[in-house]
Design a protein around this nucleic acid. Sequence first.
DNA 1: CCAAAAGTGTTTTAACTACACCCATGC
DNA 2: GCATGGGTGTAGTTAAAACACTTTTGG
Lengths: 226, 226
Amino acid sequence: MIRQNIKVAVDAVVFGYKDKTLNVLLIKRDIAPFRDSWALPGGLVLENESLEEAVERELKEETNVKVDYLEQLYSFGTPGRDPRNRVVSITYFALVKPEHHEIKADTDAQDVAWFDIQKLPDLAFDHQHILEKAKQRLQNKLTYEPIGFDLLDDKFLFSDLEKLYMTILEKQIDRRNFRKKILSFDILEELDEKVSEGRGRPANLFQFNKKQYFKHQKEGFLFDIK
Amino acid sequence: MIRQNIKVAVDAVVFGYKDKTLNVLLIKRDIAPFRDSWALPGGLVLENESLEEAVERELKEETNVKVDYLEQLYSFGTPGRDPRNRVVSITYFALVKPEHHEIKADTDAQDVAWFDIQKLPDLAFDHQHILEKAKQRLQNKLTYEPIGFDLLDDKFLFSDLEKLYMTILEKQIDRRNFRKKILSFDILEELDEKVSEGRGRPANLFQFNKKQYFKHQKEGFLFDIK
DNA sequence: CCAAAAGTGTTTTAACTACACCCATGC
DNA sequence: GCATGGGTGTAGTTAAAACACTTTTGG
């Protein structure tokens, strides 16, 4: 067998929706290279864990975050992307709901923080590039899968969902058409609870019905928001 | 740094369209494990080549095929997927035009062959699973990117394109609506050449105009076939 | 009663679907 | 002249886009 000394790592782009903006979870590196730079959470895969287990372990260790949605994003393996050794990184795309935001730095990290996607610091390695790819995935995915609900609290206002779509897709959306479209999918439950934001007419809370979504999906229904 | 002994490989799912059927390029393994089984072409990544270079090299070595389209598919890394060592495989999705079909077995392979996707043998490792994923990618991609042209000769009949779509998407398509739709994209050139298939009215040859496609794409046009 | 956000319907426009007959050639 | 595949248009239906006023609350 050919002698090969390539390391395998995982990195995660974790998105959270806070204060009406899209945020990414970053760690401040405590070791060289790129010491004191901000970077995506991640690290080497252990001998006997799956790739997903590696991501979840690293996220727990480095940030104390447990994600609500996780899927593989892309693998990066250009020689030289890590100045120490050849490292192939399998990257993941993750979403967390606001209530899980009890972040805490730990292993190999001096600090952990959420960054508004519009106000990012310089990132270590090729992490800027990875983040771009993740952002595109998020934008695409939002239009054909109901992943927006993994960024909101279980109970949410329709206006929050709408703002989330506008923020992430970076465009204006007509309130009436949007509401009509989403409601026509029959995947939301309107709760008998109203919330007042302090001013204006109180709004109704809604809840995503995942079972209903899977049921409709099996019957051939396609979630699709332009 | 943590001791880690995971190998990094690449594997490719290469699709070709022959005799009005969708085919996959497979090799017959000449070494253990799974000796004499059919498998996807691929192998370990060398120390100083990129992942794409590794795929292209392995395809050249094992099958003598040079692909017309290549993109990353997915990475598989479950412990135990290779009985020898832990191997993480970064898999690729590739398309070849019919004229490049001069396949030839070489390194580590007793044989190379095209298999009709409907008549596949048992595959080594988790290659069946990888192939499923590739097939889904092909079906999806065909509807929102003009990759069908990478499976046809440079000059083709409209009926070939139509049959290709029906074969891959596994459904009937209305000839008139399909032609109308594709032509409305303004990405095909109708050539002044007719071809007779032996019987029936001779048909016109068409050619995909990639420049025109990129131009329209920049202007916001979206290729989309239902 | 004023400001602020929530809630709601109709009309116009564009895209998709369904569908059938004539044409050019080889034998 | 007949069998075979190639080429074309229209009407009906459905989904998307555009658009403005009324309601409920807090201060």
